[in-house]
Amino acid sequence: MTYEEGIFYVVAGMTVIGALGVVVARNVVHSALFLILALVAVAGLFLLLSAEFLAIVQVLIYGGAVTILILFAMMLTRVRDVPQALDGPQRPFAAMAAAAFLSVTILAVVGTDWEALGATEKINVIPIEALGDVLFRNWAVPFELASLVLIVALIGAIVLARGEEGE
């Protein structure tokens, strides 16, 4: 086991624990905290994959903005921490479906000959300058469209959340 693998297992373990915590925690606020753990761990995975830019974005947007937003929403909707009410009646089916999905995907991952598809042995380092170059050269139009989507979402969210006049 190389030290890289060691780091991977540590970060992967944190991610799985965080995710598990999100879906099984008996307290919604705990869930949110677990989510932060999972998101930051995923940022670590990104670093491991040599995607430093994405790791930074991940921490900024997810670890910061999104979790804060979710906590706000919890506060506003006053989701009471009544343990027995957190899970719906179809939980067993949910577990079965998740397990089925997991087995199918793992089967697919194991059953695929990645070498034949051109997978390399090691992680290839991607320079951040090259990424920026491509993003603003070849993907400029989708990038601008993404900004547009954000603007629309922003306006939409305000319109929806503000409510009607006199409410």
Binding site: L20, V22, V79, L86, G88, A94, A98, A99
Partner: peptide, 24 residues
């Protein structure tokens, strides 16, 4: 790892009742 993460997400979406938890 991503499969595990996705399956846990599926479980959460299907099992949880609160819309905020589902979003998470």
């Amino acid at each position: 790892l991503s499969s595990i993460l996705f399956s846990l997400g599926i479980y959460g979406v299907l099992a949880r009742r609160s819309a905020v938890l589902i979003l998470m």
